[in-house]
Computed example of a mutant assay.
Amino acid sequence: MAREVQVTFDGADPAGLATFWAEVLGYVPDEPPAGFATWDKALDAWGVPPERRNSASAVHDPDGAGPRLFFQQVPEGKTAKNRVHLDVRAAPGLESDARMAALEAEAARLVRLGAVRVERFEPGGISAGHLVMQDPEGNEFCLD
């Protein structure tokens, strides 16, 4: 039986993380529920106060190929290294200098969006080379 996968991020600013990851992956925000023209109209109808309107957000692949990403607000900050992380395949099929140049170009774009560059791993042995990054709230991911 096939299952759908959703990746959930805990954070302080769900809307900000959703905007960042939508830009990284080419995703789009989830549409408002049926019967509502906007999320604000839905939240108004449900009586959600303004201070609770950034408690969750979600984005999805418009082509339906990738998993939905869900962002939920939590009171505590990030305290340790992620045990699971996303690999953003920014240079599939490229090798050596061309691969690393493509990864560096994507890293520069993501830094402009709020990411932090952490470490570069050069190609060699079984590794094709990759960059370790962090999203605006410190969640690690790799450009692969």
Rank of each mutant, 00 (worst) to 15 (best):
A90F: 08
K78W: 08
P29A: 12
L86T: 03
A101N: 11
V132M: 14
V28F: 03
R109C: 07
V28S: 10
P123Q: 02
L43E: 12
R52F: 12
V88I: 14
G35H: 06
G77T: 11
V24A: 02
W39F: 09
P50N: 14
Y27G: 11
P75M: 04
A37I: 03
T8W: 11
F70H: 10
T79K: 11
F9P: 07
R120V: 14
E119M: 13
R109L: 07
A56Y: 13
R83V: 14
M1K: 06
P123C: 03
D63M: 05
D144E: 09
E106A: 10
P123F: 00
L113Y: 02
A102C: 00
T79C: 04
A42C: 11
Q134I: 05
G16M: 12
F70D: 09
D40V: 07
P29F: 06
F70K: 05
L110P: 04
G129K: 05
V118T: 08
A128I: 01
R83D: 12
D87A: 10
A12I: 12
P49I: 12
P67I: 01
R120M: 08
P75K: 07
E119S: 07
E137H: 00
Q6M: 13
S55I: 02
A107T: 10
P50C: 06
E122S: 15
L94K: 13
G26F: 04
T19G: 11
E119R: 15
R68H: 08
P67E: 08
T79S: 14
A2Q: 08
V24S: 00
V111A: 07
V74N: 03
M1D: 11
K78R: 13
G16K: 12
W21R: 00
F36C: 02
A65I: 15
T38I: 06
D30C: 11
T8R: 07
A12P: 02
L25P: 14
Q72C: 12
R117V: 01
D61T: 11
E104T: 13
A15V: 00
A37C: 05
H85Q: 15
F20G: 04
V7M: 04
G16T: 09
A22F: 03
P136Q: 07
R83G: 15
L143K: 06
P14G: 03
G114F: 01
K41T: 06
P75I: 04
C142H: 08
A101M: 01
R89P: 00
G26E: 05
A58C: 11
R3D: 02
N82V: 00
P32L: 01
N82I: 04
N82P: 05
A98G: 06
P29G: 02
E122Q: 13
G77M: 03
G66M: 00
D30R: 14
A65T: 13
R52C: 01
L131Y: 07
K41S: 13
A128V: 08
G114H: 04
M1C: 07
A108D: 12
L25C: 03
E140W: 06
R89I: 09
L94E: 10
G11H: 05
E4K: 08
Q72Y: 12
R52Y: 11
F20Y: 07
S127M: 12
A15R: 07
L103V: 02
D30N: 15
N139P: 02
D87N: 09
A15C: 04
I126V: 15
E76C: 09
V74Q: 10
